[in-house]
Every structure is written in C-alpha cells, then in structure tokens.
Amino acid sequence: MNALLQVEKLAKSYGGVHAVRGVSFALEAGKILALIGPNGAGKSTCFNMLNGQIRPNAGSIRLEGQEIIGLPPRAVWRRGVGRTFQITATFPSMTVRENVQVTLLSFHHRLWAMVGYAGAAYRDEANRLLALVGMEQQAERPCGELAYGDLKRLELAIALANNPRLLLMDEPTAGMAPKERVDLMRLTADIAREKGIGVLFTEHDMDVVFEHADAVMVLNRGELIARGTPEEVRRDPQVRAIYLGEGLLYHDKDQGSAA
C-alpha cells in the first residue's frame, strides 16, 4: 500500500562525519511514530531533512508518492507538512490570534496584499484553531508573554493551520510539567487520529514515548538500530545496551523498579 511518508536510504554527512546514514521508514496516515535515540544520534538532522531545511546527500523522501527533496521549507509546508520546533518558534511581537492569522494568510496566498487590515482576516478560522488546542481564552494576549506550555500549544495550532497531512514534532513536551505533557500528547493523538494526520515526533521522555506512540524507531550514530511497537523496542537487548540502560530511569513494567 502507499504510505503517507516513505523515506528511503536517507543520508547526510558533514565534512566526512556521517550524521545520518541509510535511514528508511514509512509512516501511514493517522499513525503516531516516535523517533528516539541519544543526543547527537541524528534525530534533528532527520527532521531538518524532512522539512527541507537541510538537503540530504542521498536517499529519497516521498510524501504521498511525490519526491520532496530539494524543496525549501516553505514549499514542503505547502505540500502539507506542519512542524513544531524543539525550542518554540513563534512571533513574539504579535498577539496569539495574529500568530495564527498570519499563518492562514500565508496558506491562502494573501501575504502580498498591501491594503486591508490583516487583523480582520480569517478571524473565525483562527479562533477555531485556537479552540482546538484550548487557547481561545488567550487569543488577545501578546504571544511574547505566554507561559511555556501555552507556547507549545500555540505552535501546534500554527502547525495545524495548513491542514497538514504530516506533522513533525521535535521534542514536543520538552520543558513541560508532567501533567502538561500528557495533556498535549493526548490532544495531538486525538487530532491526528480524527483527521488522519501522520505524526512523527522525537522525545527524551520515555514515559511519553511508550504511552503515546503507535510505533517507535531507535536511532544511534545515524543509523536505525531498532523499530517496532513500544513493547518490542523496550525489550530489545541492543536498545537497552545502547540507549535505555538498566531501566532505572523510566517506568519499567518488567523490572518493577519504577517509583
């Protein structure tokens, strides 16, 4: 069958150092896939290749069957790829709603218009997106004074504004309180399943990964060393040796050592 995202033999090296080599995987619509691995394993490089920020040396990335390598990030976005960043990237000098409005204006190809009041454009649509992530109460607030968790939710609303087919989330819950983490991932999962969006995310919090992902891939030194259901990956001896360790540092049902 034809997957939403089909990545084959993706490779990137910097000055002789292989950051990513021979990474292949597929993602189907409506599924949530986690990419885990130590820092420096190549997760961010993978993400940046997927949304066009970095051009790979070799391999192919097909979105609904179409090659997207070589397209700049803005063109990848037009093909239906939304993205959130590890360190949130929003527009701090605008209000929360304006952040979404400018995204919608861009989506509707209206950003070159030099007349008219942009603050009145796509107001309802922006409000709907904000309501979806539970931010409608804060629409008028300056984005620059939002709390961290709220910024993450705003980023999600922005990423959803172009009706994406694929959502890339780089450490979506980093820096959030545990309760916020659960809420945000549950929200994401609900939206993804309802709208048939494929989600690829990286994460260091194994509790989040094992609870929310349909499938997990493990990246080490630029190569995929394991993939499977959360349960399979958790039991994989190689993954334990390289990444997960003795299980002292996350909830491990098998060993019963968790708090």
Partner: peptide, 11 residues
C-alpha cells in the same frame, strides 16, 4: 546533568 542524555549515559 541527566537532561537530554540516553538513560545508559545517565547511569
């Protein structure tokens, strides 16, 4: 000191 590190390295 453990932030962002593989559980193995944290050990």
């Amino acid at each position: 000191p453990s932030e962002g590190l593989a559980p193995k390295i944290v050990e």
